[in-house]
Write a protein that binds this DNA or RNA. Structure first.
Length: 403
DNA sequence: CTAAATTCC
DNA sequence: ACCAGGAATTTAG
């Protein structure tokens, strides 16, 4: 079977013995059993030695789509006559929301290009592109509206660390952070940075701050481990206070046995003082990650609930929440109310920078990107109306009575 | 690096 | 027929 990694391993390393042909590069091993890995990283290294690895990689991509996002979603529709995810508010340790049956959060964002087989005798083209999110469209007379916190976790990291360099980036913004960093690293002008470059920069930043080793980083960065090691040194040197924040968080976790989010939520870390080095290091990374990712989850839930309350108490506004994609809220709103709702959502989310009755005062401004569209796949930015962004209205609900 | 769900063996 | 765990994919920071 093409889908069997055990059999693939047998063919690749016992029959063809490809690992002996590339001793210069070390191939990844599986975590638990220390076998030869058949992961993407391993197959990419082997693709020049034999045609099979590339075929497997292509197969895996289309098979994932077919089995999960076509057959999988179809089976979700069959049991009912409609399609709707189940949303879980308490299943994720960080406090993020998760979805099942189907998992809308993992629906492919990028369009997929699939080459047709020659034997089909394609009269038209031999590549077909699929936009999975384009399948979802709003009801007649309504439009999708997505509100997204811009770089939440990085902003929260700037807040927690008080790193002057990182704070400066957000307090006087010149361009998008990740496009800026991408242009610096790849030595190119800001408008030459492609969306792929930006995503790449984003992955690198989060990998470094959440404690990626040089092995892992070199894989993402596409350079040698030595170069990756130097890169992470220079990164943590430019943002020194980030490093002290990481150390402080780990130290406190060791003392308390748990990590705390922005709004006081805890995550217990049983292995934080484990004698096992591997487990202890993992718990330390989880501590740092929880403070940032968990705080982002706090903000998103606050935004969701606050907007829900505002819409509920409004007699004229018609808007429904369709999904929560991590730090993004997806709504369906009546065509005539798009502008009004966009302004409300934006000011509500940005006002979460200061939540006075909870004692939350972020040192960085929160920025929200609102986009609208007639399908989930093709949503375009809705520009900030200057009047709204200048005056953040007090749209927050009244504080609860003191205890 | 972290956090999910899903599919396959 | 069912379940457990691992390895691989997608997504999100």
């Amino acid at each position: 079977m093409v889908t069997s990694n055990a059999q693939l391993r047998a063919v690749l390393f016992e029959k063809l013995r490809l690992h002996e042909l590339c001793e210069n590069k070390k191939l990844p091993k599986t975590i638990s059993k220390q076998q030869q890995s058949t992961s993407e990283a391993a197959l990419l290294q082997l693709q020049h030695l034999h045609p099979l690895p590339k075929i497997i990689l292509e197969y895996r991509q289309v098979h994932k789509i077919k089995s999960t996002f076509v057959d999988g979603i179809l089976s979700c529709v069959k049991s009912k006559n409609y399609i709707s995810s189940k949303w879980y508010q308490t299943s994720a340790v960080t406090g993020r929301i998760s979805a099942k049956h189907p998992n809308f959060q993992a629906l492919p964002r990028q369009p997929l290009q699939i080459r047709k087989k020659q034997c089909i005798q394609g009269k038209e083209e031999d590549v077909v592109t699929v936009h999975p999110r384009d399948m979802f469209i709003p009801q007649e007379g309504w439009t999708f509206l997505a509100a997204d916190f811009c770089q939440v976790e990085l902003r929260l990291l700037a807040h927690f660390s008080s790193d002057p360099e990182l704070l400066r980036i957000f307090t006087n913004p010149q361009a998008d952070v990740f496009t800026m960093l991408a242009s610096q690293w790849k030595v190119m002008s800001v408008d030459e940075v492609t969306p792929e470059d930006r995503e790449h920069a984003k992955r690198i930043v989060y990998s470094v701050v959440y404690g990626a080793g040089r092995e892992r980083l070199s894989g993402i960065l596409g350079v040698s481990t030595e170069h990756a090691s130097r890169f992470q040194d220079s990164f943590l040197q430019t943002y020194r206070e980030v490093q002290t924040f990481i150390q402080r968080t780990i130290q406190q976790s060791h003392k308390k046995g748990y990590a705390v989010s922005l709004m006081g939520r805890r995550r217990n870390l049983p292995n934080i003082n484990s004698p096992d080095w591997g487990l202890r290091m993992q718990a330390e990374r989880q501590a740092v990650n929880f403070v940032v990712q968990g705080s982002a989850a706090d903000l998103c839930k606050m935004a969701m609930i606050t907007i829900f309350n505002l819409v509920s108490s409004s007699s004229s506004l018609s808007a429904r929440l369709l999904a929560q994609l991590h730090d993004e809220l997806l709504y369906e709103v009546e065509d005539s109310q798009v502008e009004q709702f966009a302004a409300l959502v934006r000011s509500t989310m940005e006002s979460l920078q200061h939540i006075h009755h909870l004692g939350v005062h972020l040192k960085v401004p929160l920025k929200v990107a609102v986009s609208i569209g007639k399908s989930w796949g093709s949503m375009s930015d809705l520009h900030t109306p200057p009047s709204v962004s200048q005056t953040p209205s007090s749209s927050f609900p009244t504080p609860p009575p003191p205890p």
